[in-house]
Computed example of a mutant assay.
Amino acid sequence: MSSEGAFLRHRLPGNVTPVDLERLCWAFVALALIADVVTTFVGLHLGLSESNPAARGAIEGYGLAGMLALKAFAISVGLVCRPLLEQAYRPIVPAGLAMPWLVAAGVNLYMISLVL
């Protein structure tokens, strides 16, 4: 038995194309970014502290602009690396950005709920 030329091709449900999926993932990036930034600054306003040292430094040094610059840098790295992937795998880039920010927003909400 030979596996030469064999490969698996995964299909997305319905008529969803990888391009459609990537667009949806970029929308999640925008939502996750907003959720993380808003919950971070609400938490800071309530007396909580930023646990990420890079974000803490950016916020302490430059406030909201520092935090947005840090997020913009992360998105820029993703956009630069995106063309290195085959089109079918490109949704991984925005998903990799959105997921940690969504988790951070969830943690922020939990911490805020403990303070309120």
Rank of each mutant, 00 (worst) to 15 (best):
N52Y: 03
V42F: 09
N15A: 12
L79S: 07
A35S: 13
L64E: 06
L12T: 12
S2L: 07
L46S: 06
E22W: 01
E60P: 02
Y62F: 14
C25H: 09
G43L: 08
A32I: 04
S3M: 13
F73G: 15
T40S: 14
A32G: 15
G5T: 09
L33F: 08
A74C: 11
V38C: 13
G66M: 05
A30D: 07
V42D: 11
L64Q: 04
A55Y: 00
D36N: 15
G5P: 05
I34W: 04
F7P: 00
G47E: 04
V37A: 12
G14I: 00
L8R: 11
G66V: 03
N52M: 08
L24A: 12
V38F: 10
V80W: 07
A54M: 12
T17N: 04
S49I: 12
I34G: 07
E50L: 08
A32K: 00
I75L: 15
V16G: 08
A69S: 12
L44D: 03
A55W: 03
D20A: 15
R23L: 03
I59F: 06
L48T: 10
Y62W: 08
L64W: 10
A58I: 00
I75P: 04
L79C: 10
A27P: 01
L12V: 10
A74H: 10
L70Q: 09
S3A: 14
A27L: 13
H45P: 04
G47Q: 07
S2G: 06
W26C: 05
M67S: 01
L8G: 09
G63Y: 03
F73Y: 14
D36W: 00
V77R: 11
C81S: 11
V29Y: 00
E50P: 13
R23F: 05
A27R: 11
G5Y: 10
Y62R: 10
R82L: 10
I34F: 11
S76W: 13
G63T: 02
G43C: 10
E86F: 07
P53R: 01
R56Q: 15
